[in-house]
Amino acid sequence: MRLPCPLCGPRDSREFTPIGGAELLTRPAPEAGEAAWDDYLHNRANACGPSRELWYHGAGCASWLVVERNTATHDVLGVTLAREAAR
């Protein structure tokens, strides 16, 4: 599996570390309450098919990336910098 890093170009998946769903970018407010934080920390959409994930390019440019990937086929649909996706 290769991921097309926006800064480094296509690179082997060995260079990256997946951290979890891109929904981690939308953190609840500190006072959002226990249920919202429980859901954020533990529960997952766990999509089968197109899905947005956070990956870290540790052995490359050290950027956080949002990777759109099909979890049923391993096709990579697109990669953007997380700092742009989070805007």
Partner: peptide
Amino acid sequence: DFYPSYAQRGNLP
């Protein structure tokens, strides 16, 4: 493999 997957197959690393 440490990435979410439903493909029932993994990768080379």
